[in-house]
Nucleic acid binder design. Structure first.
Length: 410
DNA sequence: AGGTATTCACATGAAACTATTCTCTGAGTTAGG
DNA sequence: TAACTCAGAGAATAGTTTCATGTGAATACCTGT
């Protein structure tokens, strides 16, 4: 019998995860631990939709991984349970991270309500006014209360301004039969500061703040998910508390906590262990950190990569590294790579960006008569440096041989 | 000794320039009446 | 004639350069003791 390359891995693998999807961030559990208060307060506001009134607009604040989206999706499901035929109330969810232009937002709302494929609003071609008018007609025709959830509204405002919000929050004045209320979700606490005052007051009729989970609450969430995801007794004693504690330190992000647990389980599975131990969690944390760094490094522009390479070259000799050092090395590298050389002004900014990303550590220091400059240190592990050396953009450096004595470093 | 002036090597800011992408408009095209 | 397409104008945006000004502290230079 033919065996594929996977066979031996599959056979060997001891399954300790029975339902992986429960650990995925997209998974929506049936109960949301520690969020009943938030759910309740949203529900009381939205409940008026069933009496035919327009619920107040709601603005939900909270850091990432505090369950904002999960709660709203949960509410969406509950709405459908309460009103299975969908005659009195409709729930529309829009993720503004994906749908982030004025046009696409309106188009998306409209199209979620049109069943007939032929009549759909095309994704290009119409003027915004026309899309708005069409969407308004569709909404009014259906004669019900619409709950429009705009997830990550800050993205929408960032990219396209608050026009859409202005129109959407004012749409009720134009509607004869239907009613529409908005639920904005944002993780930016100062979001409203940048809004047009009219939008601000309309949108923020009700405000709800989601606090980060503490270690204990994270533990409860993890336990709930773990009981679905894992076989009995697969997790060792301290695993969940450790995951919870680690994630609580990082702003109480439930998403990360789940991620950590999932990766730990994967590591355990791959190394053929029958249970998940604390050591697995630790290496999972390490792996996740590594992955995010390597991801950010990979997605840098080739200019930034060149600057970073210049820093790496220099950091091999351990004297303090200044902007001037980096710039001269950078100049050299640009010539070898055949890419345009940017000014020093720009390079200082690029170095600051690398600093913000946590790839290097730069601080401004005065060396007296030797001037005032940035002191730059590399803060990524060697493996990442090696990875960068293999990068497509840096390939020319590998084959490059300096024309004899040009070795700047001894 | 104590004070202040100088000096270095950039940092930091603002404005201007450029290239690219997004939006909108209006002319041309199409299809239906 | 209304609806639709699509090219090109114009606006918005991101990335960069140019120009101007600012900065912290070691060091040089005074000044009066």
């Amino acid at each position: 019998m033919y065996k594929s390359v996977f066979t031996k891995h599959i056979d060997k693998r001891i399954k300790i995860v029975k339902n992986k999807s429960a650990l995925q961030t997209s998974y929506l559990p049936e109960v949301l631990p520690h969020r009943s208060r938030e759910i309740d307060s949203i529900a009381t506001i939205i409940a008026s939709a069933f009496e035919g009134d327009r619920p107040s607009n709601i603005l939900i604040f909270g850091k990432t991984g505090t369950g904002k989206t999960a709660v709203m999706k949960f509410i969406g499901n509950e709405l459908k349970k309460e009103d299975p035929s969908g005659n009195t109330c409709a729930y529309i969810y829009i993720n503004c991270e994906i749908v982030d232009t004025r046009y696409s937002t309106l188009q998306n709302i409209g199209n979620q309500l049109i069943m007939d494929f032929e009549k759909r609003i095309p994704f290009t071609g119409w003027s915004i006014d026309k899309v708005y008018a069409e969407m308004k007609n569709i909404i009014d025709e259906q004669n019900k209360v619409f709950i429009v959830v705009l997830d990550e509204v800050d993205r929408l405002v960032d990219k396209s301004g608050d026009d859409v919000l202005y129109h959407l929050s004012k749409i009720n004045e134009d509607l004869k039969y239907s009613k529409l209320s908005l639920v904005g979700i944002t993780n930016y606490l100062k979001f409203t500061e940048f809004l047009d005052p009219r939008v601000k007051s309309r949108l923020g009729e009700e405000k709800i703040l989601f606090h980060p989970y503490d270690a204990q609450q994270l533990g409860d969430i993890l336990r709930a998910r773990a009981s679905i995801a894992f076989e009995e007794g697969v997790l060792e004693e301290g695993v969940i508390p450790l995951c919870a504690a680690m994630s609580a330190q990082e702003m109480g992000d439930a998403r990360r906590a789940l991620n950590l647990l999932r990766v730990a389980a994967e590591i355990a599975e791959r190394s053929g262990d029958t249970s998940v131990a604390e050591a697995h969690v630790r290496s999972a944390k390490n792996k996740i950190e590594m992955d995010t760094i390597s991801e950010t490094v990979k997605t840098l522009t080739s200019q930034s990569k060149t600057v970073l390479t210049a820093i790496i070259y220099h950091s091999k000799e351990n004297k303090t590294l200044t902007t001037g050092d980096v710039y001269s090395k950078y100049n050299e590298l640009c010539k070898i790579l055949g890419i345009p050389v940017l000014t020093q002004r720009r390079i200082t900014d690029l170095i600051s960006e690398l600093d913000m990303l946590g790839i290097v550590h730069a601080r401004v220091r005065s060396f007296g008569k030797a001037g005032r400059t940035k002191e730059i240190e590399l803060s990524i592990p060697q493996e990442i440096c090696d990875m960068l050396a293999d990068d497509e953009a840096m390939k020319a450096l590998k084959t490059y041989k300096p024309p004899s004595q040009t070795t700047l470093f001894k």
